[in-house]
Amino acid sequence: MTRLQKDTLTAYLFVLPAALLLSVFVVYPIVDLVVVSLHEWNILEDRMTYVAAANYRAVLADDAFRQAFVNTLIFVAGTVPTGMVISLGLALLLDSRIRAVRFLRAAIFTPYVTSTVAAGVVFVWLFDVDQGSVNAVLGVVGIKGPNWLQSEAWAMPAVILMTLWRQAGYSMVLFLAGLQAIPESTYEAATIDGARPGWQTFRHITWPQLWPTTFFVLVVSVIFAFRAFEPMYVMVRGGPVGSTTTLVYYVFDRAFRFGDMGQAAAVSTLLLALVLALTWLQFRFGRDEV
């Protein structure tokens, strides 16, 4: 055996456990997902019937699916732009040599390591119509707060607020890393050229240099938002009246409450295609230096 052959054998043995597990629990399931989506199959029966694209046609015609799609878009629109502005602002604020900066960053990041369940339980209480702090604070300034979690109009905003609170620290850390990668000399050169610190420097130096990070955070946030399930489950169980039922929630409901695996798989396949398309965008338009 040559050296290369021997090394190849060794390397395969080293890679085998990971490769085997990922094949069985990621690669094969992708194939199986598509196969299931082409069959009519209720979990209570053992029989699968091939129905071609019928499941796709059925879900696309289903009002609940359309609502889930719209709800998901609302969640994306509600969390992504605001979340990015907040975390970029936080990063700009905390990218300096002020006192206790590490402590302050940690305080903002801590919500991210709390579980969605814990955060959800806390926010359900904060948004409680009578006892909650949110309406109490609104009451102080003379606003009568809505019955957040029982309202079709206000449940989603409540879920969005909880998500923003929990995730701002994560994107902030990504932005901080991006800011710290901009060389100090770029700023010095700009100052010599007469750029005043503040808005001018931000617009002409920081923003363009930070763009790869910004784009990366954008794509990651959109993908995160598209697969949202836990906040809606914990806070309002997808309700009231389906107003917080997202695509993943719809899949969960179809598959594990109604046992309709075929239609659930069809929706999952569509969701997977969406995520892959978004990732392709990242590779196509973002430079992968982050």
Partner: peptide, 27 residues
């Protein structure tokens, strides 16, 4: 380790990162 098929296998394994678990829950 230098081995046959290294880059291809690495790319294949790393690409699994983009598939969210939520969409694979049924299979």
């Amino acid at each position: 380790i230098r081995f046959i098929g290294r880059d291809v296998i690495l790319m294949a394994l790393l690409s699994t990162i983009i598939v969210p678990f939520q969409v694979l829950v049924i299979p």
